[in-house]
Design a protein around this nucleic acid. Sequence first.
DNA 1: TTAACGAGGATAGACTTTGTCCGCGTTTTT
DNA 2: AAAAACGCGGACAAAGTCTATCCTCGTTAA
Lengths: 179, 179
Amino acid sequence: MAHITTSVEYAIHGLLWLVANEDKPLSSRDIADLQVISPSFLAKIFPKLEKAGIVAASEGVRGGYRLARPADKISFLEIVDAIEGEKPLFDCQGVRGRCAVFGDRPPDWAMAGTCAVHAVMLQAEKAMRQALAAQTLGDVASRFSRKAPGQFLADVQDWIDRRVDGRTARVGKKARDPA
Amino acid sequence: MAHITTSVEYAIHGLLWLVANEDKPLSSRDIADLQVISPSFLAKIFPKLEKAGIVAASEGVRGGYRLARPADKISFLEIVDAIEGEKPLFDCQGVRGRCAVFGDRPPDWAMAGTCAVHAVMLQAEKAMRQALAAQTLGDVASRFSRKAPGQFLADVQDWIDRRVDGRTARVGKKARDPA
DNA sequence: TTAACGAGGATAGACTTTGTCCGCGTTTTT
DNA sequence: AAAAACGCGGACAAAGTCTATCCTCGTTAA
């Protein structure tokens, strides 16, 4: 497993669909089916984004998720932290305090300040987090919309509309897109 | 488990003891006992450092490890990669190619170049690796020797000498530091 | 000859991540 | 009023990784 997990990848790609769909909320199932990933798994991910204030949820039929803020105010770092909970890059075990020549307790000079090894790792983590903080959902979304043909975006809108309309326009369990 | 694992922590702290001990080789068991960590586990770690050209191994009785290069020519990045094998920060699952409106195969425009989400993660990984590459074993070792009292380094030398001498000076299994 | 050493395979235990399933309360539509 | 689509969250199972131990092998110094 990589440090930045598949859950984060699912979250970001899901959020990118919300950028293009600002008006109507999208259900987690819609987002999952649109990307052909597990709906039940994505349903575990989006509540974390909601608790982090990245998306706003609306309950009940026709409910779903919308971005809670403009896409260029949502950084990649926020998304990663929302899903993974500020998981540290390195988990210091305090080896510096364990030395055979120390007695039962390490001396003060050995434990003063931050462990020098840990400090290097914290510096690397900081560099990584700064890079993630510098990129927003809006940046990537605009890069994508530049390369995607206009027809594609229209096709996606069609797909979404057919799903939502197909649900509300049918009676009982009969008509699902009978065309 | 953090991305930079406990194995790396053990490796670095172990290597730091080798910096101060350039003449005689230290066995992996000596290094482990000096830090009060599992000897059998550390014995799985050091062969990786040897294959990466960071340490030089000598076999047989009185064998062990020495640094293969000056400590200020060994970066943290090298050590991390030696232990973890250039494990990526993010493992792209290629979600961009999976879309319900694509048919059996995604169109060329969707798969051209690097995935925009992946590109952000690669940038973050690069920043992290640059930070790790900028720090050498020598840097941390000199920081440590500045804060450690001279008496401590002498005590460690004593501990090492007593272990090695205690092994070779005894006959059979009798005398182990009989003082 | 013995014992210390490195190297590496096999394996167990703990933990994490992915993924599924179910029940609950809420809300819109019929 | 009833049904169905939602979000939410708990309880799992399966797979993978990491830590740690043990054992065997070939090598080398005492």
